[in-house]
Design a protein around this nucleic acid. Structure first.
Length: 690
DNA sequence: CTACTATGCATTTCCGTGTC
DNA sequence: GACACGGAAATGCATAGTAG
């Protein structure tokens, strides 16, 4: 009997999935080929697909694959790439390139430009032509306009890839030093004063009036924020004993600013353009204006204080990432696929009113079996601990020693956190530390530093280089207040009742859900970790080797992740959102991470995956064998290692259990030049003479 | 003025609980 | 019995207070 090829397995899975309707969350590990398969086979089943990705790069790669199969596919890009008029505007006014929102389509796009025959732009092409598949990025989805909505709303399948990206809201806080009183007004007035004195630049009286009114309105906003911050600093808000971490106040703009004014200023067309144009003439920082306008649009602003800094964030009350989408999605006719290697648990909350089911894609190519995580036996108290540790130079030396030995001439990665000093505000930057202390010379040249888990090198398209081992210095850690602004609800929210026992009340119409905040944090930490370790995983898995006669390209690339400063339990928690997981190997005794690391990887690389019964035997037996091998190597020739000393202070290992394990791996041990001696007093180990 | 200590809050770890 | 979760306990950190 011939076994199914990898492609067949994925095709079957895709067919099953495409038959479904409604919302389906796809359970899968990294690199399982869900997106590729759905796009590839959808046309065969007469389904039109819209897929959404975090980056253009990913979309481009998929387009490349589909074009080979003669599937009609295209994607929405940045406006300046789709519309020649926006492109020209950006060329004439280069500052626009820096601010996405200043690149909106021309006002007459729909009414005039599109209808003209001679108009021949990518945007028109996308809107008017028929495609089997259309791509979109999440940032486009966030600013989706009516035209694009009209275009995509009748497609059959919507694939939201890397769904965690959707939940990272794009709110950018405005941060300044706590002692900078009246920050907003000062910053704004400096430009405003000069601006009023040079009125001759106005195009006409009407524009002058408009602009002055808008400018005054923004100045009022600044004044009000400054006033509120001063009040909050004098008398920080405390709702219960603890308050909400770091939040010292909330600004209610709804009470202060009329809806009419708000729509006026936030109108993306003419008024905003005037505002931008004059701001530019007057050298008012356009990015700052952009942020300011963002604040203006929200009902509430959040004032947070941390380590001498004040940060102002828009509060996304009753935040619902799917709001736009559900305004047109029909679960009885259409299919929504939510896909991520780490399915955020927060989705169950956000979709609590919508029927949603889990589709088990599984790990068809068994890629999980090719990856092994080796964890530390201590937890660092924080990511800063590395800097407080007397051992830090040693850790670097050990990384260098083991990295070189394990990966030979192939490069290996070191993931370091990017942390800020609590009082001095300077960065605890691992990469800088290595440079300052001349550690770069100790680290061999094949070491590649990546400065945090969520670095752009950790998501999207894989770059070509292969690697065998990767070191993670501390787990991904997201600051606790990062999601505060998404966790405020009103009684009208669809999750209000779900959390009614956990609410912290701010006012009659505003409540905070602390558990939600933790959930966002956990989901995102888990996603960061899973996506990162997926980078070096062999995506071809092990199926290739069993489905037919082995060939040279069938070598299974086993990869290793080394967790420094966090234990097995934490690693498991980080992997709890994903489908199955790689084996997690913890050194047999404390403090043996680097001592046993090379041997652990050697044992795994020298044995076939089928040699081990299952994941739990690897997790239990490999550390013990590695420990025995290393202890024996350390001893003088002729000396024996007694089993008693091996299992000393290890309650869970009895002499019989140890005996059973080592006898099972007698051949393996002899491969590492260790012999087992059985005597009436128990079992012992000896180095074989060569 | 300096060095040390007590205090209280913030952060982190630990551990009991409920669930499967 | 393994696991995730969330609250309790422990620890860390900064600051104010105090002794010398």
């Amino acid at each position: 009997m011939t076994k199914a090829s990898p492609m067949d397995i994925r095709k079957e899975l895709t067919i099953e999935l495409l038959k479904k309707k409604g919302i389906w969350m796809v359970n899968k590990p990294t690199s399982a080929g869900v997106t590729t398969s759905v796009l590839r086979y959808a046309k065969e089943f007469g389904k039109k697909v819209v897929f959404i990705e975090p980056y253009h790069k990913i979309i481009e790669k998929q387009i490349e694959k589909c074009r080979k199969k003669s599937i009609k596919i295209n994607s929405f890009r940045k406006n300046r790439e789709m519309c020649p008029r926006v492109k020209k505007r950006c060329k004439d006014e280069p500052w626009r390139n820096a601010v996405m929102k200043c690149q909106y389509l021309p006002n007459d796009c729909l009414k005039k430009c599109m209808k003209k025959k001679e108009t021949n732009c990518l945007y028109k092409e996308l809107i008017t032509k028929e495609y089997d598949i259309l791509g979109l990025t999440y940032s486009k989805y966030e600013f989706i306009n009516e035209q694009i909505k009209e275009k995509i709303k009748n497609y059959d399948v919507f694939l939201f890839d890397e769904i965690t990206s959707l939940l990272n809201s794009s709110v950018k806080p405005l941060v300044y030093k706590e002692n900078d009183i009246n920050h907003f007004t000062k910053k704004f007035k400096a430009s405003f004063k000069e601006f009023l004195d040079r009125g001759e630049k106005y195009k006409d009286e009407k524009e002058k009036d408009l602009l002055e009114a808008m400018w005054a309105e923004l100045l009022f906003l600044c004044g009000y924020i400054d006033y509120s911050v001063r009040k909050a600093l004098e008398n920080p808000m405390k709702i219960n004993k603890f308050g909400v971490r770091k939040v010292i106040g909330i600004i209610n703009l709804r009470e202060k600013i009329s809806e009419a004014y708000r729509n006026w200023i936030n109108n993306k067309g003419k008024y905003r353009e005037i505002l931008e144009r004059y701001a530019k003439i007057e050298k008012f920082p356009i990015k700052y204006l952009d942020k300011l306008l963002d604040l203006y649009f929200e009902d509430y602003l959040l004032i947070e204080r941390e380590k001498g800094n004040i940060s102002i964030k828009s509060l996304m009350v009753d935040y619902d990432a799917f709001e736009t989408f559900f305004s047109f999605f029909n679960p009885n006719k259409q299919l929504l696929i939510l896909s991520d290697s780490s399915m955020p648990s927060i989705l169950n909350v956000l979709l609590c009113n919508e029927k949603h089911k889990v589709y088990n894609w599984g790990d068809p190519l068994n890629t999980n079996k090719t990856q092994f995580i080796i964890t530390d036996t201590i937890n660092w108290q924080s990511k800063k601990q590395f800097f407080h540790s007397k051992d830090k130079d040693n850790i670097i030396k050990e990384i260098s020693r083991t990295g070189k030995a394990i990966s030979k001439n192939v490069r290996y990665f070191i993931i370091t956190p990017d942390s800020v000093h609590p009082t001095k505000g300077t960065k605890y930057n691992y990469a800088n530390y290595l440079e300052w202390h001349g550690m770069k010379e100790i680290l061999n040249k094949k070491a590649v530093l990546i400065d945090h888990h969520r670095s752009t090198r950790s998501k999207g398209i894989k770059f070509e280089e292969k690697s065998i081992i990767e070191y993670h210095m501390s787990r991904p850690l997201i600051p606790e207040n990062s999601y505060n602004h998404l966790c405020f609800v009103t009684p009208e929210s669809h999750i209000f009742n779900l959390y009614k026992d956990f609410l912290i009340k701010f006012s009659d119409s505003l409540y905070y859900i602390p558990i939600l905040c933790k959930r966002y944090k956990r989901d995102n930490e888990a996603s960061a970790y899973i996506n990162r370790i997926g980078r070096i995983k062999d995506e071809k898995g092990i199926i290739k080797a069993v489905s037919r006669e082995p060939r040279s390209e069938d070598i299974i690339h086993k990869t290793f992740i080394v967790n420094i400063g966090f234990k097995r339990q934490k690693t498991k928690e980080l992997l709890s959102n994903t489908f199955e997981r790689p084996a997690i190997i913890t050194p047999f005794k404390e403090g043996r991470l680097f001592k046993d690391l090379i041997t652990i990887t050697n044992i795994i690389r020298r044995t076939s995956i089928n040699y081990w019964e299952d994941m739990s035997t690897i997790e239990e037996e490999v550390p013990l064998l590695a420990y025995i091998i290393n202890e024996c190597k350390k001893m003088r020739k002729g000396k024996r290692l007694r089993s008693k000393s091996v299992i000393k202070d290890k309650k869970e290992y009895s002499p019989t259990k140890l005996k059973k394990i080592v006898l099972k791996h007698k051949d393996l041990l002899s491969m590492f030049k260790i012999s087992i001696n059985e005597t009436n007093r128990g079992i012992s180990f000896k180095r074989l003479l060569t």
